[in-house]
Each structure stands twice: as structure tokens, then as C-alpha cells.
Design a protein around this nucleic acid. Structure first.
Length: 190
DNA sequence: CCGCAGATTGACT
DNA sequence: GTCAATCTGCGGG
């Protein structure tokens, strides 16, 4: 299944579909690979979304086609990474909240010197962008190519997916748009 | 284990 | 000027 096909799915379905996918970051000649274990859905119908009040310079990637990188600065020092979703013109994206480290762990540790354990390497949206060195220069990048690729895997069974409210928002806080793989030790919070 | 203060800056109102 | 889809270190239990 190709990443572009995400444009046919609703945002929640995309967020579920991205669970289990591999994120592959080529950095300094090394493949940093993580398996997506936690996601959140955001789209223009949702007051919690950056796209709720229309297109701006910051959010324009989410109004483009599916399968691109939407990256933004948060709290002055972190970045969050999203996979854009939905058809062209519809502002939607899926926040990648946590990964299971698969390959390149040594370099991830070097990228995240403050992480005390390997579970702290990628168990949060700001953590994983540090570990994989995802910066603003990748804004809008098409995720079917290097140096940052998202490779879908067979869909994770629904009974293995836990659905909850999202983290760190005020508006739309009651909506069940956070998804994670049950029993994964690498999620940000169970 | 838990709770909380502080860090730090781009983008929007 | 305000505030944010966060993380870390520190103090207490």
C-alpha cells in the first residue's frame, strides 16, 4: 500500500493505519529506524487542530496532499512531526507521538544525550524528533523518499489498538483521537 | 512513584 | 504580547 493512498482515508483511519509503519531517517550515512506505536488525528473540523482556523504559512503542508511532513516548533525548543493526511485542500495530519527504536540506536542515543534509558529515546513527540534529527529543513518533505521515509506495514488489528483522548490540548480534549499499540513499552503514556 | 517549575522562541492575534 | 499537539530536573513520599 502506498503512502499516497492515505488521501482516501479519514483522518482517524489514517492515524490507525500508520501504527506499525516504519519511519526511516537517513542521517550522517546511517539509517535511523523506528516503528510507529502512537499517533493522534487532527483535521480542520477539529478545534484542536492547527488547521481549524484556515491556512497559514505555518500549517500550509497540511492543506497539501497526503504523505508529506508537517513539522512545527513547540515550547521554543522542541519540534513535532506529523504525516499529512486527506485529499489535497483538506487540512489534516497525524501527529507521530512515539516510536519503537528498531535500528541505529547508537546514533539515537548520541542525538538524545539527556535520555537516561532506551525507552526514553523516542517515547514522545519531542523526543523522537531529536532522536531521528527531524528538523524544519524537512518541512513539506515527501515521505516516500530519502532522507525521511514512512513505509506502511500490514494494518495492526483493531483489538491491539487502544483509543484514548489526546495529550496536551484544551480545545477538543474530549475527542477520542489518540491511538496506540496496546502493551507497547514505547508509548508516551499508557 | 508523583507533581511542578522552568526553559525558550516562532507564529499568530 | 501571548502562548504552545513538550521535556527535564528537582523535591517529596
Amino acid at each position: 500500500m502506498k503512502l499516497r493512498s492515505l488521501s482516501n482515508l479519514e483522518t482517524d483511519a489514517t492515524a490507525r493505519r500508520l501504527l506499525g509503519a516504519y519511519l526511516i531517517r537517513k542521517y550522517n550515512g546511517v539509517d535511523l529506524i523506528g516503528r510507529i506505536v502512537e499517533t493522534e488525528a487532527y483535521d480542520q473540523t477539529d478545534p484542536a487542530s492547527h488547521t481549524y482556523r484556515g491556512e497559514t504559512k505555518r500549517n500550509r503542508a497540511m492543506f497539501g496532499p497526503a504523505g508529506h511532513a508537517y513539522i512545527y516548533h513547540i515550547y521554543g525548543m522542541y519540534r513535532c512531526f506529523n504525516v499529512t493526511s486527506g485529499p489535497d485542500g483538506f487540512g489534516a495530519g497525524v501527529l507521530i507521538r512515539a516510536l519503537e527504536p528498531v535500528e541505529g540506536i547508537e546514533l539515537m542515543r548520541a542525538n538524545r544525550p539527556r535520555a537516561k534509558t532506551d525507552t526514553a529515546l523516542t517515547s514522545g513527540p519531542g523526543k523522537l524528533t531529536q532522536a531521528l534529527a527531524i528538523d524544519m529543513d524537512l518541512y513539506g518533505h515527501e515521505l516516500s523518499r530519502k532522507p525521511l521515509q514512512c513505509v506502511l506495514q500490514p494494518a495492526v488489528a483493531s483489538r491491539l489498538i487502544k483509543t484514548t483522548t489526546r495529550i496536551g490540548i484544551k480545545e477538543g480534549a474530549d475527542r477520542l483521537r489518540r491511538f496506540y499499540i496496546k502493551d507497547s513499552p514505547f508509548v508516551s503514556t499508557p
